[in-house]
Amino acid sequence: MSVRVRIPTILRSYTDGESEVGASGATLAEVIDDLEARFPGVKGRILDEQGSIRRFVNVYVGNEDVRFQEALQTPTEDGAQVSVIPAVAGG
């Protein structure tokens, strides 16, 4: 599955400044692995040492927070947009 991934400012040093990149994978976990293959280091910023999404990172597939879905096993359909967004906002 081919998806688009929105990259937050603090990860753009890994993507040559690109704010959106393409990636492939049938699940969010596969998409992140694909990103890591092309932009080494990015996975370690999104996931913690246990391989879970860091607690101050929000990841969305489409408009849905993956914590309301199947977390890293959330399916990523062809053409989906994945957004990685710092969680420290609001209030």
């Binding site: 929105r6 937050p8 400012t9 704010s19 929000n58 969305y60 408009n63 927070d65 957004s83 967004i85 710092p86 420290v88 906002a89 609001g90 209030g91």
Partner: peptide, 27 residues
């Protein structure tokens, strides 16, 4: 809802230079 609005603000703050989102980039 607010969480949707908050997410949108975070995305705008990441794109627009010179915008101070009070509870995002100057939080």
């Amino acid at each position: 809802n607010y969480d949707d609005v908050n997410r949108l603000a975070s995305e705008i703050a990441g794109e627009e230079e010179g915008w101070a989102f009070v509870n995002v980039n100057v939080r």
